[in-house]
Amino acid sequence: MFAESDLNARNKRVQGLFRMLFLMMTVLLIVPVAIILFTLVSKGGSVISIDFLFTNPTDGMTAGGIFPALLGTVWIVAVALLASVPLGVAAAIYLNEYAGDNWFTRLIQLAIINLAGVPSIVHALFGVGAFVIFFGFGTSILAASLTLAIMTLPIVIVSTRESLRAVPQAFREACWNMGATRWQTIRRIVLPNAISGILTGVILEVSRTAGETAPIMFTGAAFFLPFLPQGVFDQTMAMSLHLFVVATQVPGVPEELPFGVALVLIAMVLIMNSISIAFRMYLRGKKKW
């Protein structure tokens, strides 16, 4: 009565087949990442040292370290964050907590989606036109960072909105029913509970900003500079552009140097991502609903 029928057996075979197929697809996903990391470490690992991180490039960038580029990337990312985080978080709060569902809100949402879809090189040209020329910032950290900020704004808005949306509506209703205004509700209940998600989004944005090349190469990042930036109106070297330069533009670079630069860049990104994930896990563990 409970024995396996032919149909059962066939269904089982098919089910096993699909399971195998999906598993293989998943494994395939990991392969490129593993190969990239392995190649970078094996070919570029030898150049990594404290000196490499903290000295200037020498001999026409065929030797020496990467300090100006490393510091430049930190500058660009920091200024970009200062611009995009307040703007993006404020916009997300408006959209999620205040705006009704009307044509205006939908138009803004459409604009955000489209902003996310604009190719980075187009952002770069916009940055040149708007920040370098029109606002007169010149090719500078400020112009590069603002270009990046506009490019990453959709990520901040979308991730912030998602964190805000994750705060149960019942909390808001509880507040409103005690006579709290929207702002009191946001300030006392919604933001404290959404902050982990917002910060996670911000950190993910950092890692993306750090790796971008196109938007900064015309707006603020320099091929080579013999000095460090002193302020936001200076140009600077940057990791991503430096990698491009030593890999393709300069003759006589030892083979392991570009790999070393790439390894440092990817390590920065991975470290930021890990911090973000660890942080999120820590804060989630503390939540109780």
Binding site: P168, A170, F171, E173, A174, N177, I189, N193, K287, K288
Partner: peptide, 10 residues
């Protein structure tokens, strides 16, 4: 107002 599902604040 008291709701169907208790909604204490976190």
């Amino acid at each position: 107002m008291v709701f169907q599902r208790p909604n204490p604040l976190p």
